[in-house]
Design a protein around this nucleic acid. Structure first.
Lengths: 218, 218
DNA sequence: TTCTCAATTATACATGCGTACAACAACGAG
DNA sequence: CTCGTTGTTGTACGCATGTATAATTGAGAA
């Protein structure tokens, strides 16, 4: 009997690493950390299990890369929204909040993926650093957006407002993702804009632009 | 060679179930879901692995029981604080918030434990029901506390304030637990009281009582 | 075309997992 | 004191996991 080997193509290191990281993330998002086995990851990435160890020194190494990619992606989402926003301070803050409180950020898979790495943040000091860096970067962006608002406040008040606004976004992100049926359309976004607006003393709701222009085409 | 069996004591069903659930929770809290194997759980509970299947039909059954116990415990913490609080509305709301934003609720192990069950909430409809029930119970408590405040607002505003306050507590719970070194002592609690106070239009900070009377003895 | 090298596959291995079940012994009933 | 119930132990089984490594083969270099 003939031993036939499966055909394959050689790909660049970048392509393969991205495919493996993406496969890991989607598996964790769908079935939790235990679903992301080397065999399942390889199958989803379209390669055989052995290849993982050619690009990552261990499964743990791949896991770490996948977490770093997740944090980078989440950070990027808000920055993207800011680039497209106009230059009125209220509108910029509102756009940032809207981007953080609508899909694909608000999504049960995103929360499951994020939660799946939770215990590794505690055990692995490098991942803890990545988490902390991502959190502080996000909060600092938020703080500078708040600082640009037309009002005069102390540094302590500014810090407090940024922490509170960040917490409000995180909490609404969780609840809106995990319990999507519990809220009316747009209720999460509206609640976030209203609450953060109250905290920082500005009307953000009227500065809200529709997040997805293409949704008007329905 | 003699085959010696390890000595043991017979215990009540309740004792054993509680021990196994508690062992499961602490293992998940420390090392994530993958650390909670039947062998590890049995060892921590002081029994042999076989006994698990005598009290739970499967490991999944035990996992489910552990999650339900977690949700019940978290719900209970706030109710306990309310029983000890005095009867001024602002003080009651403040006490509830303080209890939710101080240890042992704010704790990295609690977050890791909670996050460890995240993906099961999605896959298991019974657990989803438990989660939803726990969340709504908590938010309704919060809403009735807010409703008792000396102010007149619409039902829609009341609901919105409750959702926002809940999100604020959740977000601060996460951040204070995961990044304890990032905040000064009491900063999380003070931020929560101040922000929720602003949202509902009351001064909660001045109604705050020290959470732990025994901490004054240091 | 032929050669060369490393990207990729395929196979094997030790370990740990959840489960099943028969044997044992603690302890209350009589 | 003896017996019977059943809580508890110990062992075994099949399977999946992460890892190691030899064998192949795609694709650019000469």
């Amino acid at each position: 009997m003939e031993q036939i080997r499966r055909a394959y193509r050689r790909e660049s290191e970048e392509t393969r690493r991205e495919a493996l990281i993406s496969a890991t993330q989607s598996l964790v998002a769908e079935g939790g950390p235990e679903a992301a086995t080397v065999r399942a990851i390889a199958a989803r990435a379209g390669v055989t299990p052995g290849l993982i160890r050619h690009y990552f020194s261990s499964k743990d190494d791949l896991t770490r890369a996948a977490y770093i990619a997740l944090i980078d992606g989440m950070t990027e989402k808000g920055a993207e929204a800011l680039r497209e926003a106009d230059d009125r301070p209220e509108a910029r803050l509102a756009a940032f909040i809207v981007a953080s409180l609508t899909p694909p950020v608000v999504d049960i898979s995103a929360v499951v993926l994020w939660a799946g790495y939770m215990h590794k943040i505690r055990a692995d000091s490098e991942l803890r650093g990545v988490h902390q860096g991502g959190y502080l970067r996000y909060r600092n962006t938020l703080q500078s957006l708040i600082a640009d608002l037309p009002r005069e406040v102390s540094a302590a008040r500014l810090r407090r407002d940024a922490i509170a606004s960040n917490a409000m976004i995180d909490g609404l992100w969780l609840e809106g993702s995990i319990l999507p049926d519990g809220f009316a359309d747009g209720e999460i976004v509206a609640t976030g804009l209203l609450a953060i607006g109250t905290i920082v003393g500005c009307d953000l709701l009227s500065h809200m632009k529709l997040a997805k222009p293409e949704s008007a085409a329905e």
